Amino acid sequence: MPITISPVVDVKTSLGENPLWDIEQQRLYFIDSADGRIFRTTADGYRVETWDVREMIGSMALRSGGETAVVALQSGIYSFDFKKDQLELLHAPEADTPTNRLNDGKADSRGRFVFGSMDTREAEGAGKLYRLDPDMSLTTLDEGIVCSNGPCWSPDERTFYFTDSWSGEIRAYDYEPETGSVSRRRTFVSVDERDGGLADGMTVDAEGFLWEAHVFAGKLNRYAPDGTLERSINMPVRKVTSVMFGGPNLDTLFVTSMGRSPKPQFPEDGPLRGAVFAVEGLGVRGLPAYRFGA
């Protein structure tokens, strides 16, 4: 079966991020980080719903037991009720650092939300990596980060992957599923940036291979568990931002993109800029997204 790439939803997100397929609802969620919006749609993009969270949003994870999510906004971690369109502040870990905002995050199988922060100027290592437990306790896992991106786990959850996009590397940590602790940080991949690309959002498939959205270069890279580049796929736009498997069989790779260049030196894109794409025919399946508090 040949690989096909097609736009699923074209709402011209300024900064599309965080594709999240919920297996219970059979719905795709994604966000516009810059414009502060959450979207929900069917696998074919036929029906699109939108919520405005009224400030920049870095990531989200659905919560167990209802129509709510935990969301990483510019000012802190909130609980968001989709039906009431209501936010409730849970933590403001960086209220004393106004040049920072919260960014990428995901839930693990024990219902913890692991997320990071970033320097909005993307210049200083002022960001941190956090873990929010279901009891709402907050733990710092790492620090000295410019731009947190791509948290994800190996299928057995013994390895945690993460990138500081400006570091030139994808990192691996030993992860303890029972406690959510990390240790033994190391370089998993030294990212090839000769094409002008940086590591952005990431996910792991059922075979344990890591998929990376290579932003500004218009590529998706797949790495073997030993860090070897297994394949690279060219996308219709250069500013691809994040990836997540979904669809009824978890074999469609959904890819978000950026509709607006953050700085003048970064490339512009054509009419499909800011769209969400479906990549099919890859021959692999993904892992289900977990819910916070499960």
Rank of each mutant, 00 (worst) to 15 (best):
N221T: 13
P98Q: 07
R112I: 10
A206D: 15
D119K: 09
L272P: 04
V243M: 05
R238P: 01
G197A: 13
G111T: 01
S154Q: 08
G286H: 15
E143S: 07
Q74F: 14
M136H: 13
E268L: 07
G45P: 01
R110T: 02
P288G: 10
T203D: 11
G168D: 09
A95F: 03
H214L: 06
R186G: 04
E212T: 14
V11D: 01
G281A: 04
M56V: 03
N149H: 10
E207Q: 03
A172V: 01
A206P: 14
A294C: 12
L129E: 15
R40Y: 12
L73V: 05
P98W: 11
P19M: 05
E176Y: 10
G208P: 14
Y223G: 00
A275D: 10
R54I: 15
P98Y: 07
E24R: 04
F216K: 13
E67D: 10
L28P: 07
G105F: 10
L198N: 15
L198E: 15
R186W: 15
L210G: 11
W153G: 00
Q86F: 15
R27V: 03
A278I: 02
G208C: 15
F209D: 07
I233K: 09
S190P: 00
F162L: 04
G218I: 09
G274E: 11
F80S: 03
E122M: 15
T4P: 05
M60P: 02
R40H: 07
V48T: 03
R260K: 02
N221F: 01
A278H: 06
R54M: 12
N234E: 03
T179G: 07
R222Y: 11
G127S: 12
D135N: 13
G66T: 05
F292K: 09
P7W: 01
Y161M: 13
L253P: 04
E88Y: 02
Y46W: 11
D44V: 01
I77V: 07
R158C: 03
M1T: 00
L28M: 13
N103R: 01
R112M: 13
Y161A: 02
T163R: 04
T41M: 03
I5E: 03
R285P: 06
Y46V: 00
R194M: 04
E24T: 01
S167C: 12
E55W: 03
S6N: 10
P177F: 04
V276P: 15
G127T: 07
T163A: 01
D10I: 05
V71A: 08
G150H: 11
M136R: 14
H91W: 12
E193P: 09
F216G: 07
L87N: 08
A95Q: 15
F80D: 02
D85G: 12
G150I: 04
P271N: 07
E178H: 10
P248V: 08
N149Y: 09
G208S: 14
D200K: 14
A289Q: 05
E88H: 05
R54Q: 13
S257I: 07
A69C: 07
P155A: 02
I38S: 01
D104P: 01
L73C: 02
T187C: 15
L62C: 08
M60Q: 00
V11K: 06
I38V: 01
G281C: 05
P155Q: 00
V70S: 00
V276W: 13
